[in-house]
Amino acid sequence: MASDPTLLAPVVNAGLILASALTLLAGYRVIKGPTVPDRVVALDTIATNVVAIAALFALSTGEGLFVTVSLVLAIIGFISTIAVSQFVTEGDIIE
């Protein structure tokens, strides 16, 4: 909102773009594998990146509420990771 556009905005925007691009790269790992844990790790990374994106967006727009979103994202990322790894281990889902 009230941030000085000369300094903060470009940095935050650059960070946003970088994080989005990184997500794309991590997506490659999810698809490529080669093993399921690899995919899970990559997914975890994406989740972390997305947390960062949400936080960055909060900075970029000045809307504090996106921080809440990033917290929820973190929660979600954790639970997904746990769930997948647990089922990979306990279930029969092995390639």
Binding site: I75, A83, Q86
Partner: peptide
């Protein structure tokens, strides 16, 4: 602010889901 019955509810459920999983 963001949130509401649905989001709160589902998040609650994820907590339970975590317990179930672990």
């Amino acid at each position: 602010l963001p949130g509401g019955g649905f989001i709160g509810g589902v998040l609650t459920v994820t907590a339970f889901a975590l317990i179930y999983v672990i």
